[in-house]
């Protein structure tokens, strides 16, 4: 019963809110507009934008040691999460049956375990750093904590339901996924999409100046 509600109406409602919310956020951003740059560019802005969208995935030269901890944990979390999200067998089944109509090969079990460990360890470390480091304390908002905890809860309930033997556990996982999806567009989790814009804008400006940013 509960599972049917969560996987039925609630799931559809969350998908709608998720997608509409993201559209609204992009509209909010893009509607503010950017004035065209009238200065004569030194090199092409578009190339700069594309380069920065990719290149900010790793760190700049001459910058790192003070932030090694954060960088390592950040990579752990995001790589782990990515594998879990798209290569865990139950997720692929869900995507095939409920979303796309086709699936792909799941990661082998040990890859799955390793990804889960990386993701959990990374997320916990990042959040702990958030509450322990003076800089992180200064700049963290309620949203940062909410996002980290919601993500944790989703992953945690997913882990609890791993045996796939109890509908109750599955429902719990789906419920938390729905909550996360509803929260997502209104939070800093939007960075997962808007990073293309922010990197792109900066890359374009710097590209026009002839600086590889």
């Amino acid at each position: 019963m509960f599972l049917e509600f969560v996987e039925g109406p609630l799931w559809y409602a969350s998908v709608v809110i998720f997608l509409v919310g993201i559209a609204i956020r992009f509209y909010e951003i893009l509607a503010r507009g950017v004035k065209p740059d009238l200065a004569v560019p030194r090199t092409d802005g578009t190339a700069g934008a594309l380069r920065t969208i990719v290149s900010r995935s790793w760190t700049a030269k001459g910058f790192s040691s003070g932030a090694v901890f954060h960088l390592v944990a950040g990579y752990m979390f995001h790589i782990g999460l990515f594998v879990l999200l798209f290569f865990a067998a139950p997720h692929i089944v869900f995507i095939e049956e409920r979303i796309l109509g086709f699936g792909w090969t799941a990661a082998p079990h040990w890859v799955f375990i390793a990804a889960a460990n990386l993701a959990f360890a990374g997320l916990i470390l990042l959040w702990l750093r958030r509450v322990m480091h003076p800089v992180m304390r200064k700049i963290s908002t309620f949203d940062d904590h909410a996002a980290a905890w919601l993500t944790f809860i989703v992953m945690f309930t997913g882990c609890m339901a791993l045996l796939e033997g109890h509908d109750g556990l599955r429902a719990l996982h789906m419920l938390s996924v729905c909550v996360l999806m509803i929260y997502f567009p209104f939070s800093r989790l939007m960075h997962a999409f808007t990073f293309v814009l922010s990197r792109g804008y900066t890359g374009a400006v710097m590209g026009r100046k002839g600086v590889q940013a």
Binding site: R32, V135, M136, I139, D144, R188, M190, T194, L197, S198
Partner: peptide, 27 residues
């Protein structure tokens, strides 16, 4: 002052604090 660039920056900021490590006033 908040144009699309700044709106995208503020939307994207994950509050990771890495910018502090780059700024001489912090370091």
């Amino acid at each position: 002052q908040i144009d699309a660039k700044i709106a995208s920056y503020l939307s994207s900021c994950v509050g990771c604090g890495l910018c502090a490590e780059a700024c001489l006033f912090y370091t």
